[in-house]
Computed example of a mutant assay.
Amino acid sequence: MKEKNLLAELAAYLFSHSDNATGRTPSERELAEHFAVSRGQIREALAILEAMRIVERRAKSGIYIDTKQASVEAMALFARAGLPLDPIQIYETVELRKIHEIKAAELACSRATEE
């Protein structure tokens, strides 16, 4: 299974198979068995999802879904995986992008030369 496919499919699977009350997901072993890949591949995919702030891995406790601080990249992954997007996160992301674009335009104007 290609890594990009694994990421989107893993994210979707984690959302659909996490405990509603705690956010706890299946173990690495269970995930590896389900996707028919090695635990190393699952660990790598989980590391990426953790960097995107989609999951939190807790030593001797498990893997937990945590999307409250999910990155912009996570939102793109959610869309690709067909997962629902949080309207507040979408609004905040668009707002942040507008701020960055305005600042970039200001910097470009201030650094412009006659050339």
Rank of each mutant, 00 (worst) to 15 (best):
E9V: 13
I65W: 05
R29E: 15
G23M: 07
K98Q: 03
K2M: 12
V37Y: 10
T25V: 09
K60N: 14
V55D: 04
T22F: 02
E73K: 08
T67W: 03
R58L: 01
Y91T: 00
Q89V: 10
E56P: 00
A79P: 13
T22Q: 08
A108K: 14
S18W: 06
R57E: 07
L10M: 08
A8S: 13
T67S: 07
A79N: 09
R39K: 01
E30W: 03
E106N: 10
K60A: 12
I54Y: 10
G62A: 00
L83H: 04
T93P: 11
N5M: 12
G23H: 10
R80V: 11
L96W: 02
V55F: 01
P26Q: 03
T93V: 06
P84M: 01
E114M: 09
E92D: 09
R29V: 14
A45Q: 04
E114G: 13
Y64F: 07
Y91S: 06
A76G: 06
M75C: 05
L46E: 03
A47K: 01
K68P: 09
E114C: 13
D19T: 06
H34A: 15
A81G: 01
R24G: 01
A112P: 13
I54H: 08
Q41M: 03
I63Y: 15
A32W: 03
I54D: 08
A51F: 03
A108C: 12
S27G: 05
S110H: 08
I90M: 13
Y64P: 00
I42P: 15
A76T: 04
Q69M: 11
L77G: 06
R43F: 06
A45T: 00
A70F: 12
I54W: 07
K103A: 11
F78C: 05
L31D: 05
G62K: 04
S71Q: 13
A79T: 12
H17S: 10
A81I: 05
L31T: 04
Q41N: 14
Y91Q: 04
T93E: 03
R53A: 03
S61R: 06
E9H: 14
F78G: 02
V72W: 01
L107S: 10
E28F: 08
K98A: 01
I99S: 11
R80Y: 09
L49C: 02
L7N: 09
I102A: 13
A79D: 14
I63A: 15
A47N: 00
T67D: 07
K98N: 03
K4Y: 12
I90D: 04
A51N: 15
A12T: 06
R58K: 02
D19A: 10
Q89T: 07
S16N: 13
I48L: 12
Y13M: 01
Y91E: 02
